[in-house]
Design a protein around this nucleic acid. Structure first.
Lengths: 199, 199
DNA sequence: TCGATACGGCACGTGCCGTGCCGTCACAGA
DNA sequence: TCTGTGACGGCACGGCACGTGCCGTATCGA
């Protein structure tokens, strides 16, 4: 065992992130202190500061280490069904612990810490956006969407209401709500709106 | 002058809120301390704590005391034009100091302070929502919208993308962006979409 | 005249910050 | 085998802001 060194370091890193998650769940991010994290992880404060330069970045790493399985789009050939699958999964994640409150706190922190905002975008928002846009683009290539269908705008209209509920009104995001958003985007909101998406 | 008492109290309240705004602009909400606010306002800390039970609620009061003129909808008979007017005004407010960064910080604080979240909703979000819905309802009554047009959903689709850009991707909200959202909601996103909204 | 109330100023104990210093221990190189 | 190096846990420190006491003062109503 030549490299117990690196393994031990990784163990400590994992222990610190786990302690961060545990304490954030128990106390909320607002009352999370690095002293408490270090104590809970059985670690000196230096060991935390050596790895993360701020509480926000530690929290970011901890939250993003959680499982986000199922947030990548499949391509079954049905764009609406594939979007619905990921959106409902996202809503379920965000609506319940542990993800919900933690992610909410994380975005809250991003509002007054530019480093956290930048890292959150680069590591989570942008990849998720890219995945969604790729799926939309494939649908357009397959002729499921009009040639002038604005993919970026569609993504914002699909995501916006979810985040609006999560961050602003703090209402729950239901599956029915998602269906209505999907229908609005893909079938329109007017009188002639089809009740089932175009196939 | 029987009531110099109340007048002086109001003066202090105003001075504290002004100091809060000044310091928030200079340092950002994250570095805002009640000690500094009291000192800047020329006031004892008790005088602050007597009026506000937390830093978040003080900040809320201070931010909401700013001028929000022009965020109420007119009724010119053209629903899209009236919405566009308010949305562009909102985008201009949120995109620039002083409103933009302060409002962003305020929503950030609301993510980990339920009292701030509740008060923000009650005092700003809900009235603004009600005003928008009233304008939409009038349009429906005037026959400008289909009878089954979902007003609540429309409101979320109009607001969501703006907040998504403000809070998540932190991209600027341009007038062109607003026009595209409006067109998507009122003319649809498909191939038959009219390039000008229904009249 | 006399309480009552709000005030500014000051000081206090508390908690967390970020950073030193120390002794220990596992490892790498000579 | 010996020795240097680096990360570590533990501890203590100064600094800062917290929220709350206490004091003397000024302004008001009874």
């Amino acid at each position: 065992m030549t490299d117990n060194r690196a393994a031990r370091a990784d163990d400590r890193t994992a222990a610190i992130m786990q302690a961060t998650l545990d304490l954030a769940r128990e106390l909320g991010y607002a009352k999370l202190t690095i002293e408490a994290v270090a104590a809970r992880a059985g670690v000196g404060k230096h060991t935390v500061y050596r790895r993360w330069s701020s509480r926000g970045l530690l929290f970011l790493d901890a939250v993003l280490s959680l499982d986000t399985a199922g947030l990548r789009h499949r391509d079954t050939g049905d764009i609406v069904a594939d979007l619905r699958e990921v959106m409902t999964r996202a809503a379920d994640l965000l609506g319940r612990p542990p993800w919900g409150p933690l992610y909410q706190d994380l975005i809250g922190e991003a509002q007054h810490d530019p480093e956290v905002a930048a890292a959150l975008n680069r590591r989570f928002i942008e990849p998720q956006t890219a995945d969604t846009l790729a799926r939309l683009r494939a649908a357009k290539d397959q002729g499921q969407l009009a040639p002038d269908f604005d993919l970026d705008l569609a993504f914002e209209i699909l995501s916006g209401p979810l985040y609006f509920r999560l961050l602003v009104t703090q209402q729950p995001v239901t599956h029915d709500h998602i269906d209505r958003v999907l229908q609005a985007v893909f079938a329109g909101m007017g009188p002639g709106a089809r009740t089932t998406p175009a196939s």
